[in-house]
């Protein structure tokens, strides 16, 4: 009998991953802090992390603020044979450490990967056709994720550019947030297109500094993900941006969008990282200043629009 797939995190994303995997015939062990029950027979819910040691592939669907703490606990039960793949969109600290770096540091697992692209909980749980990208340097991780999730309704592409996938996934969230903001402010399609493409160019510059490949940002993890967000896949970052534009505080906006404040605070991390590397990130720097109340939306828009237009 094949080994079960483990899913860490009983939130909406974790549950959707478990369902998507069960749909393609896998046995799933779903860990969550609180006891849960799911109707699918092939999904076994547990509150004991040690039970996940039986699996080979462990899908890590924990919100970025809790990644370190859960990784520490999970690490007690895993070893070098486990394949650990996360779906987080976060980056850690001003050095922009990726979640896979945190996992490799705090657990014994080295065969790590990140699943990204236009993945949202609602679509993943339903049978709606979609796609995803698995970033990992380990061929067995790519193979295991494709087997665990790939099927008629989910095309799973792969790339060895793990850091590129993680950076693209996180930074697209920031671009989506600013697009939500701009939409709420009533900006037209032309302005949104400029914001989206310049945002992606900025994300690519930052990603390259961290060792990512530019083409990853043009693929499913970057441009693909952003198109899905703008097309209305119910991405919390868009709603977060809209709520902020309505004058809500960070905490209130996050609550309304069912998002984490950290998603918005990423702008400050990116700005600090880029300043050290002496790379221009006008969008992230502007957003960070906006969040800190140092600049108004009107001033930010003016500052961005009056920058000299250079070669693309």
């Amino acid at each position: 009998m094949s080994l079960p797939i483990a899913v860490v995190g009983g939130g909406s994303f974790g549950q959707s991953l478990a369902r998507a995997s069960a749909r393609v015939g896998q046995r799933v062990l779903l860990w969550s802090r609180r006891p849960r029950e799911l109707p699918e027979e092939s999904i076994t819910c547990t509150t004991e992390l040690r039970e996940l040691a039986d699996a080979e592939l462990v899908l890590f669907a924990v919100p970025s603020p809790h990644v370190g703490e859960v990784a520490d606990e999970l690490g007690h039960h895993l070893d070098g044979s486990h394949l650990l793949v996360h779906v987080s969109r976060g980056l850690v600290g001003d050095e922009l450490h990726t979640v896979s770096e945190v996992l490799a540091e705090r657990t014994p697992c080295r065969r790590v990967g990140a699943l990204a692209g236009p993945l949202v909980a609602k679509n993943l749980a339903s049978d709606e056709p979609s796609g995803a990208i698995i970033g990992s340097q380990f061929p067995e991780v790519v193979e295991a994720v494709s087997e665990a999730l790939g099927g008629p309704s989910l095309r799973v592409y792969s790339t060895p550019d793990l850091v590129g996938v993680e950076l693209a996934s996180a930074l697209v969230g920031l671009v989506a947030l600013s697009l939500g903001y701009a939409m709420q402010m009533g900006m037209g399609p032309g302005a949104l297109a400029v914001l989206a493409t310049r945002g992606l160019a900025e994300a690519t510059r930052v990603g390259e500094l961290r060792g990512g490949q530019p083409r990853t940002f043009a693929g499913l993890a970057g441009a693909g993900d952003l198109i899905a967000a703008v097309a209305g896949d119910g991405r919390p970052e868009i709603e977060f941006g809209r709520a902020l534009a309505q004058g809500l505080s960070l905490a209130e906006a996050a609550e309304r969008a069912d998002a984490y404040i950290e998603g918005a605070l990423l702008a400050g991390q990116v700005a600090a990282f880029a300043a050290r590397a002496r790379v221009e990130v006008p969008l992230s720097t502007g957003l960070a200043r906006l969040m800190r109340g140092e600049i108004s939306v009107a001033k930010l828009t003016e500052a961005l629009m009056t920058r000299p237009a250079t070669r693309e």
Binding site: D72, H76, D79, G80, S81, E105, P108, F138
Partner: peptide, 26 residues
């Protein structure tokens, strides 16, 4: 040693489903 100080088998890193192998890409 794992990050929690536990002794772990380095052989687990070159094994899949209990079988050690040589894999150039890995």
């Amino acid at each position: 040693l794992a990050p929690d100080g536990r002794v772990i088998d380095p052989g687990s890193y070159v094994s899949r489903r209990g079988t050690p192998s040589v894999d150039a890409r890995r």
